[in-house]
Nucleic acid binder design. Structure first.
Lengths: 151, 151
DNA sequence: GTACAACTTCAAGTCAGCTTGAGGTCAAGG
DNA sequence: CCTTGACCTCAAGCTGACTTGAAGTTGTAC
């Protein structure tokens, strides 16, 4: 049985975040000693699972829907497979981007704006940047770096 | 010369966003007719460039640093190449994730938590999920979908 | 038995990338 | 000349994932 600071120390997840996750139903504490939360060691696995989900680009809400908060993280295999497919699509798109950027870096056109390949990429990127924009971005790559560091 | 609604219509970027981008120095309007902004057609390219950058996962700030706001978007080839490499790393990591998820979906272990491959993945993902977490996530895949739609 | 460090709750703040709303201006058409 | 609607500004609001701070509680060491 672990107290919150032990969990924090072992996982690198701050205590404030652990409380937040519990509030959101992503993890559970198995009891209290006075006021203080007590966690079962299984929570460590839970947290790894959450980190995995985040690194794969899923929101906490999605992660919450993927598996239960009590130690027994039973993931629906169909859902997992669907997520893998989603990820695969993302990967293919990012690959196209990467290739475009690489081309632009090598390309000898006087300006990227005059490089046909670069323009094609730009066109792709600007196609249908419609409404329904909402939240944010950025952390993802950082989180990924921390998560899978070393490949 | 285009007014803001024409730019909005042609690019799918809302007027409010265009004003926001101008405020942030990502684009420039070439003048005013009365109060109303006037844009040079070059802004359309600018906006494509911004969309491209966002789709590749860069923040507006990074994008701003990569090229100037006036039509002449001269991108440093070295920076481009570096970004491509960054993207490549991201892709490799996401690929590892995808493979892990696929494995977990097929794997016959009673619970994913008992599947060695899945555990290895989790370990990777949870390694060094340290401090310095900040902003958000999520939109990225969506934005990418809009941006590169159709691969 | 008392000090104190470590916990607790709850409300508010942060960040990016925008959107929304109130209230104001002004060029063009009738 | 006057109306109108598209534009303007500025401030505030929104989402997700947390963090921070104030104020209260408490197991443990002395």
């Amino acid at each position: 049985m672990l107290d919150i600071s032990e969990v924090a120390q072992r996982t690198g997840v701050p205590a404030s975040t652990l409380r937040y996750y519990e509030e959101k139903g992503l993890i559970v504490s198995t009891g209290r000693r006075g006021l203080k939360r007590i966690f079962a060691p299984a929570v460590l696995d839970q947290l790894s699972l959450i980190a995995l989900g985040q690194a794969a680009g899923f929101s906490l809400e999605e992660i919450g829907r993927m598996f239960s908060a009590n130690g027994e993280a039973r993931i629906d295999r169909k859902a997992l497979s669907a997520k893998a497919d989603e990820l695969d699509e993302t990967i293919m798109k990012l690959s196209a981007m990467r290739d475009g950027l690489q081309h632009a870096a090598r390309c000898r056109a006087p300006s990227h704006l005059e490089c046909p390949t670069f323009r094609r990429l730009m066109k792709l990127a600007s196609a249908r940047v419609q409404k329904d924009n909402k939240a944010v971005n950025k952390v993802r790559r950082e989180r990924l770096n921390r998560a899978v560091e070393g490949g």
